[in-house]
């Protein structure tokens, strides 16, 4: 006969073990917690993207205006802040969010793949395209960001690569076929990512509700379309000669 029986008096205290691990640790260890990290970091990145996209649109105001805007970002807050401080603060926050987002996604994906070790013989399309492409879409976006920084922040891979002349650098990039292709593919992936990601984050954070669901889904689609269109308008403008 088997079975380890715990005496009654021990049992009484077994349910209350005194010290619990801190909530943050519990959060990070749980699947819901990791999803929460993804939702929050995704939200930060989304906010940044909105600002970034709006800033990009300044390119339609011409070279001077765009370059002044870029410069303003560098000197914002002076003299309270030093030159470039704002950008570095933003960069640190973004980097943290990106790392958290990617590490959580990586760990969750590994868990998910392990949780379904054998596939069905009778496969079937599941879920929407946006939902199914979250992982690969995320990888594409991550690779894009690396290229994007080397291209327009550090200028290493930019065809022009002149410091202090962002407008001209942008035009240079979008004057190449590969620059446009990489950028547009990445922005489409981003749109899909946001479309599922925004609603998914609302689910994860528990803020969705049957009465709110349609509005949230519409907002997600609206944000995805607005961001994609906003970002893609720049290369298209360069290609069509509106911006040169």
């Amino acid at each position: 006969m088997t079975g380890a029986f715990i005496p009654l008096d021990v049992m009484a205290s077994a349910t209350d073990t005194g010290r619990r691990p801190s909530s943050l640790r519990v959060l990070w260890r749980s699947t819901i917690g990791k999803k929460t990290v993804m939702a929050v970091s995704g939200g930060i990145l989304l906010l940044y993207l909105i600002v970034h996209m709006l800033g990009n649109l300044k390119i339609f105001a011409g070279s001077t205006s765009f370059n002044e805007y870029a410069e303003w970002l560098r000197v914002f807050g002076e003299p309270a802040l030093g030159e470039g401080w704002l950008l570095w603060v933003v960069r640190v926050v973004l980097l943290t969010a990106v790392i958290a987002h990617i590490v959580a996604a990586w760990q969750l994906s590994r868990l998910d793949i392990r949780a379904r070790p054998v596939k069905y013989a009778h496969g079937r399309r599941r879920a929407t395209y946006a939902t199914r492409t979250m992982r690969w879409g995320g990888v594409i976006i991550a690779l894009f960001v690396v290229w994007h920084i080397l291209d327009l922040t550090t200028g290493h891979v930019n065809p022009l690569g002149e410091e202090g002349r962002p407008y001209e650098n942008v035009v240079a990039t979008f004057s190449t076929w590969y620059g446009n292709t990489i950028y547009i593919v990445a922005m489409l992936a981003l749109g899909l990512h946001i479309r599922h990601g925004f609603w998914s984050a609302a689910q994860t954070l528990g803020v969705n509700h049957p009465r709110r669901d349609r509005a949230l889904k519409a907002t997600a689609t609206g944000l995805a379309v607005a961001l994609t269109v906003g970002f893609v308008s720049v290369p298209i403008a360069v290609m069509t000669g509106i911006v040169s």
């Binding site: 519990v26 749980s30 819901i32 793949i113 599922h196």
Partner: peptide, 20 residues
């Protein structure tokens, strides 16, 4: 807390809000 911890410990995957 306890049910979510038990769920995770059993090796189920996480939710990606697929809805299946």
């Amino acid at each position: 807390r306890e049910m979510v911890a038990a769920m995770d410990a059993e090796g189920f995957g996480g939710c990606t809000n697929v809805g299946e």
